[in-house]
Amino acid sequence: MAELTYRDAVIRGIAQEMERDPDVVFLGEDVAKAGGVFKATVGLFEQFGPLRVRDTPISEQAIMGAAMGAAMTGLKPIAEIMFSDFFAVCFDYIANEFPKSRYMSNGQLKCPLVVRTGNGAGSRFGAQHSQSVENWCMMIPGLKVVAPSSPRDVIGLLAAAVRDPDPVIFFEHKSLYATKGEVPDGEIVDQLGTAKILRPGTDATILALALMVPRALAAAEKLQAEHGINAEVVDVRSLVPLDTQTILGSVARTHRLFTVEENPRLCGWGAEIVSIVADEAFYDLDGPPVRITTPHIPLPAADNLEDIVLPTVDRIVETVRRSLGS
């Protein structure tokens, strides 16, 4: 067991899979010699060499397309898109190419690849380098979508993503890179499509993803200490496949549902989950499901403004408290 940063967990996760399988290759902008703009790929170039860890031009379409072509023909590429906002310039591959080739070809083509990307706010980078775009990907049939919140999950879910035969979009949260967590020694392999109950509780279910997970946990402690509310916190971890059984099971116990989402409100991932719960567990609910989200605005750069728009610990506490009427 060792304490590792989320950033170093990315390095360890990639290295674990590259050591295991020579068909795992890695490409992206500034990822090789420079070690990545977030320093999340430092040392991989030195360890695995220039044939397996490759710097690309600033050509997001070329990165995505090359990953796909390599995946179709036998490699297991990991591609990095530096900021998830840049998905917008290569969205064709995410929306039209990766997820549809298997279906359109009636199973003749495969696309086993992983796209890693820096997602989310907190760095004061403004509206084009701060977004949470996991919902852009969740809506597309054929993709798998993962967003870990801890160093241990980074390694385990990255390994699962690399070993998965489908295209997986892997969202790393920029504001989590410096955070630390305990990580067991040896190989770690987790399972896609599994949520995790991080804090069992009886009064309300709080679903969160990535950076919102530590905030939901802190909010739960505060709710307990200050208001006597015992909230259950579930780290959703995987939007596709979605672990609805864990979510429905939690709601059946607590009878209240809250989602904490960094993505803007409209069509955020919580909307889909609320709809599932409304369909399938309506009579388990003692009150309306409540979504705590970033408002439907572009993200501002100024620190005081950015801090207001993201769901905070206090906003979560206040929303849950008011909703539960205590």
């Binding site: 050509s59 070329a62 090359a66 796909m68 072509g69 179709m72 591959y93 039209n96 190419e97």
Partner: peptide, 18 residues
């Protein structure tokens, strides 16, 4: 989708090279 397959062909060629 016009142009999409040029980078994809690059990837297949990269695999051959690798």
């Amino acid at each position: 989708i016009i142009g999409a397959h040029l980078p994809i062909a690059c990837g297949a060629a990269w695999r051959a090279q690798y």
